[in-house]
Design a protein around this nucleic acid. Structure first.
Lengths: 187, 187
DNA sequence: GTCTATACCGAGATAGAC
DNA sequence: GTCTATCTCGGTATAGAC
């Protein structure tokens, strides 16, 4: 088994994701990542031929993270509770959001501006997540515009991440997630 | 009068803002800006000692733009109509938002990750704007939580910018701004 | 597969003539 | 005030020994 290889590779990805979140992808150098992950710089290129390839791996990493989150919400009994749990997670994450924004949203925003292949990669980041939210609203029934509802929810979560990050103010997250919880509860 | 000087300087700022919006501030080189603004590279440093100083000028530029927008909304008779006009502007801007996100929001997100002095600059970007929105809600009366309402509105506008940019889909803006218009109208 | 040394280039910044 | 030429550093990527 290539345990070492896999370990190093995933360590690099995880570190890259962390640093890209903290300082932005473009600002983060391969040397930064290599050092933090305790891997010699030259060795990075054994796992990733280019920096762009590493970006793709970071996106992949986030997709898995999102998938994992959704799985945990699937445990809930009703679609309403699932969406509630989704909002709750954001509420609990207020401090990190105020410090660095949403890890997915900020990455997406940055990659879109990178243009080229990376911009296309970014588009995928929210696709499955939005579809999942939409599915919950559909399962709840009672409203035909499930897409509009899903957009509204995800949009609100992204927006509050931007604002709380801008002001570096976790309290804003509590304010808006509270509103969202009321909204879901009242449905 | 230093007409030439002022002209060149403001041309540089405007170009810098445009390119930073299109490709991100960090990705944009001084050479890019100089070329686009038709100013020799070396001359840029006569107006801005460092690239960071140029970033500060870009922020300043956006602050003025926002101020101008608010002034145009002030023309409306009632605070409700003013907020409506604010949302309407976003709706009309759907295509640009889908292409590059909100010029203020994306800049803010990027500068926050830059850290240091630039991160602090970013914090100012939304301050006055949020205060203005809050003032409109206060003028409308009938609700004590004017701050929550203001956060909700600005957050929604920022969120839909992130999403429509991510999916490169202007229609999402229409969807969410429609919802916001209904919300304001019903108040 | 792993790591060191280094090539190469691009970007920010400066010197100094005009 | 304006512009050309250039310095310098840092970051991506490669060569090649082990």
């Amino acid at each position: 088994m290539q345990k070492n290889k896999t370990d190093k590779r995933s360590r690099l990805i995880q570190t890259a994701a962390k640093l890209a979140y903290r300082q932005g992808f473009r600002k983060t150098t391969l040397a930064d990542i290599a050092e933090e992950a305790q891997v010699p710089l030259g060795n990075v290129y054994y796992y990733f031929k280019t920096k762009d390839e590493l970006a793709a791996a970071i996106v992949e990493h986030h997709l898995k993270q999102l998938e994992t989150s959704r799985q945990s919400w699937e445990e809930m009994d009703s679609p309403k509770e699932r969406l509630y749990a989704c909002v709750q997670m954001t509420a609990e994450n207020a401090r990190a959001l105020a410090r660095g924004g949403c890890s997915v949203g900020t990455l997406c925003t940055e990659l879109r501006k990178e243009g080229g292949a990376l911009a296309k990669l970014a588009a995928v980041l929210f696709t499955e997540h939005l579809a999942w939210i939409e599915a919950q609203f559909r399962a709840m029934g009672g409203n035909d515009d499930v897409r509009g509802l899903a957009i509204h929810l995800l949009s609100a979560l992204q927006g509050i991440a931007v604002l709380s990050n801008s002001f570096e103010e976790p309290a804003l997250v509590a304010l808006e997630t509270g509103r969202l919880k009321d909204w879901i509860r009242a449905m």
